[in-house]
Design a protein around this nucleic acid. Structure first.
Lengths: 375, 375
DNA sequence: GTGAAAGCGCTAACAC
DNA sequence: GTGTTAGCGCTTTCAC
């Protein structure tokens, strides 16, 4: 952009703009720290080679930790690297290696605490396998999610993990043809991707059975509306009720995966008679919304109504909330996703694999015995 | 790795492993969808050029949306792109342009809901400026945070945002010399980076004044321990108390930025006599821990004790919690961070800029008039 | 052990 | 309008 010239001086390369020669008095007396923009030309492997008096290939060997380099040369190279502040260019390396050792992770909603553990599991496992993780998000919007995936693919990540994607199945399948792909929290069934999901119907069943074991029969469900997994949880609820011979008590109202619809669902339940004595909500936030509605109407939890959530997020664990919930092993699921990718990338697996992990019950303070001992 | 041979056929290039010739019966009768690993050689700009019968430069022009390409050629190129499923290689492009239009964002703790809004603001503003955002995290660990930053720098992102970094100031300054850098939530003072922070002392002052306006005088503080910003909030509290002539009521106990230390801090407060009538906690989670402790000891909030948090996170907003809190304009701060970067990258600004934004009060249901009307 | 040379996939002059 | 050419910064044969 601006005219510049370059000066080599000692161990540093300085970028001295010709324009813009202001007093520069604001800092130290211009000793070893001349003011300059931080966009100076970055040293390349060639700069290091020249400085160390060797060839670029030799520098490359040292950087990659190759054993067959003489100690003296290794020392010289390392010194030059330090002096110049050399940092290898991952793009150049990736270009020639056709391999980046990067996995891209697209999280549908980074601000949802639900993904915290998943992300943590992914991060840790990737590190063990010496992969770098790049996160991106569609910020809850389908089109942005696609953009995020495209960017990662253009960067040539070695593999892709989609955590709770909001996009269409066909789109997902298309990406699966472009790179090793693992989908989390949404079961895929195609030949092009792996998936790691939790057994939603099973989780719903566990929830219902927990209520039943406490003597409840009028167990209602506030569903997740159009949310992914909502249908499976609803069906699981209905099947479990049938299996327990409680089909005449089946009661499903519309909710959603956030607080507000949960609240509305609960209000709807409050208008029914007889009132249910236990409510299984589609997820924790939904349950929280219901909790408010119930408490505001003067009911006590769990004395009057038992309440369960799903996902066992950090909010459920807050002592002030202490919500009984169905736990998904999120950290493990994150780790598994990375393992699946690794198998495809480094072990050459090509057959799709679809894992379903089991949810479990975490009993806290919002569930208790049925009031009065029965219906 | 494995022996392979390549077959050109129609519009697709197939990668047919010689080994592993299993029944392949699981899918369609091997018509247009032969089973194959998704690691097939990806088409390059040259493949597109050949297919469209033009030169690579022409393809390049079309892809970058240059106007001076004849409609017929443009059509041919676009067709070839679609047929081959061509996706430009961002590494190759970045290498020659020395520009990636990517900004790297390192979040110290992705599972902390506090960062949700910041991330959202960053994402949205970056999109407006046509930058791609790459997130990474150190997962709460200093060394991993450095690794994450290094990786992003090796990828040659055009700029870097560190959200609530846990690493040393000198390290941060070092990175600032490598690339345009904006630090969020931690004030830097060097010449190498910009910073965007919230005015912690001011926030603390607002909290204290709110309590005072409700008649409270015995206002205590549970601090954030060693957490970043904790000291500024503590000092702000003390100054505000002085300014209101309440210095003899200054009471600070050790806490932290999570639930458990908040709980312990509250228990410590409960052992003091006279009890404070209002408590300002270092952040929302800390306040939540205190809330539990208070409620368990039989106190009612806000009738017996008023309670304030800081950060106005999503948990504070939960109706069931409804915690009065000091709000930081997180979304705006995220946007500002991107703007600062943009100024350095695209507008050539080199003087450091340190922005401090004002916090504000969000009154909810955990603060109320002092019991009995005074001390 | 070390160096020379080719080339990864793309853009950016510069011709025509 | 379109093609040719020369790199971007690195790894990778292949000589020596």
């Amino acid at each position: 952009m601006d005219a510049e010239f370059w000066v080599y001086f000692g161990t540093f390369q300085w970028n001295v703009p010709i324009l813009n020669s202001k007093p520069e008095s604001s800092q130290v007396p211009s000793s070893r720290k001349p003011p300059r923009p931080n966009q100076r030309k970055r040293p390349t492997i060639l700069d290091v080679a020249r400085r160390a008096g060797v060839s670029k290939s030799l520098v490359s060997l040292v950087i990659r930790g190759d054993a067959r380099v003489s100690p003296s040369n290794r020392g010289a190279v390392l010194e030059a690297v330090a002096e110049l502040g050399y940092r290898p260019n991952a793009m150049a390396r990736g270009l020639v290696q056709r391999r980046t050792r990067m996995v891209g992770v697209v999280v549908s909603d980074l601000s949802n605490p639900f993904f915290g553990d998943v992300v943590s599991g992914i991060q840790r496992r990737a590190r063990e396998l010496e992969y770098t993780v790049l996160f991106s998000t569609g910020d809850r919007q389908q089109d942005l999610e696609v953009e995020a995936i495209e960017s990662l693919l253009e960067l040539r990540v070695d593999g892709l993990i989609l955590a709770g994607p909001r996009i269409e199945f066909e789109t997902i399948e298309g990406f699966g043809r472009s790179a090793p792909l693992v989908v989390l929290h949404r079961p895929t069934a195609d030949d092009w991707s792996d998936s790691v999901t939790n057994d939603d119907p099973k989780g719903a069943q566990i929830a219902v059975e927990h209520c039943a074991s406490l003597g409840h029969t009028r167990i209602a469900h506030i569903d997740g509306g159009p949310g992914a997994g909502a249908q499976a949880r609803r069906e699981g609820y209905e099947q479990a009720m049938h299996r327990l011979g409680l089909e005449r008590h089946i009661l499903v109202v519309t909710g959603g995966f956030t607080e507000k619809p949960g609240r509305r669902g609960a209000q709807e339940l409050l208008s029914r008679r007889p009132l249910p004595t236990a409510v299984f909500a589609a997820n924790d936030l939904c349950a929280l919304g219901a909790l408010n509605a119930f408490e505001e109407s003067g009911l006590t939890i769990p004395e009057d109504i038992s309440l369960l959530g799903y996902d066992n997020t950090s909010v459920a664990a807050l002592r002030h909330v202490s919500l009984t919930s169905i736990h998904q092993p999120s950290v493990r699921m994150g780790r598994m996703a990375v393992d699946r990718l690794f198998e495809r990338i480094d072990k050459g697996r090509t057959e799709p694999r679809h894992d379903v992990v089991s949810p479990s019950l975490v009993v806290r303070d919002t569930t208790g015995p049925v009031p009065g001992g029965g219906e």
